[in-house]
């Protein structure tokens, strides 16, 4: 009982903070939106190349851009826990009888919620530009679930860095450095067949590719469960490692 209530209370606090600092929301949305608007214009004719899947770059790239958003906003979530650590807020919470797990759970759920809201905004913009989701409403819901799950797993990385280094700059630095190489060397923005050999290899090992592929079949092909489930397996594996590390470090901090 206390776990649910405490999680809810801390979730609401995080959401309130998010809404009241719209500049943060703006910055993490800014990049995906630039990608969505500029990239898809810049590479428009790319879609006409022989062998380009679906023959439409926008339709192809939407999945990648949704994931990019999930990726970069998840990598920022570690900074909020650093804020709470350095401001003393966490200590203030820890001297109350609050359920310890609720502190982490409230943080993770608010991160997931944030990724969902941002994904919805990007999807609406993509629709306005002419993209579609062939699997309809159920497909869209599954996309949201996938992105949220993906976001949680990657939040684990930034939370781990945050708890370990207690430095928001480090979280930003490492997060920013990771984002672009991982994104460009995945199937997010360019079909694997168009890449030079060594990037193809990296891309096949890159967990982002699996998730992008799952979202892409939902936007463009249909419910291809093989692709979708393998994405969940990969994300699940990452989640166990990253959230496990987060939990371990968090326990060290609170208990």
């Amino acid at each position: 009982m206390s776990l649910m209530f405490d999680t809810w209370v801390l979730f609401v606090r995080a959401i309130k903070k998010l809404i009241r600092t719209p500049i943060l929301l703006f910055f993490s949305l800014f990049q995906p939106i630039i990608f969505l608007v500029l990239f898809t214009q810049l590479f428009k004719n790319f879609g006409q190349l022989p062998g380009f899947p679906g023959g439409n770059y926008l339709q192809f790239a939407v999945a990648g851009i949704i994931l990019q958003n999930g990726f970069s906003s998840a990598l920022q979530s570690g900074t909020s826990i650093v804020d709470d650590l350095t401001s003393g807020f966490l200590q203030k919470v820890l001297v109350t009888p609050v359920n310890r797990s609720a502190i982490l759970l409230g943080r993770l759920l608010s991160d997931a919620f944030r990724v969902l809201v941002q994904s919805a905004i990007i999807l609406v913009l993509a629709f306005a530009l002419g993209a579609t989701v062939v699997t309809g409403i159920p497909g869209i819901l599954l996309i949201f679930l996938t992105v949220a799950f993906f976001g949680l797993a990657w939040s684990g990385i930034s939370l781990t860095i945050g708890l370990r280094t207690k430095s928001a700059e480090t979280v930003f630095g490492i997060g920013g450095t990771l984002t672009f190489p991982l994104l460009f060397m995945s199937s997010a923005l360019v079909p694997v067949g168009f890449m030079p050999g060594w990037i193809q290899t990296v891309s096949k090992l890159n967990p982002i590719s699996y998730t992008v592929d799952a979202v892409r079949v939902l936007t463009s092909t249909g419910f291809d469960w093989g692709t979708i489930l393998s994405a969940y397996a990969v994300i699940g594996g990452i989640a166990i490692v990253t959230l496990g590390a987060t939990l371990y470090l968090f326990r060290k901090v609170v208990s």
Partner: peptide, 14 residues
């Protein structure tokens, strides 16, 4: 117990 720590902790966004 109630605790007030040395560094003032209030959430400025709230």
């Amino acid at each position: 117990i109630g605790v007030q720590s040395q560094e003032t902790v209030v959430d400025g966004d709230l």
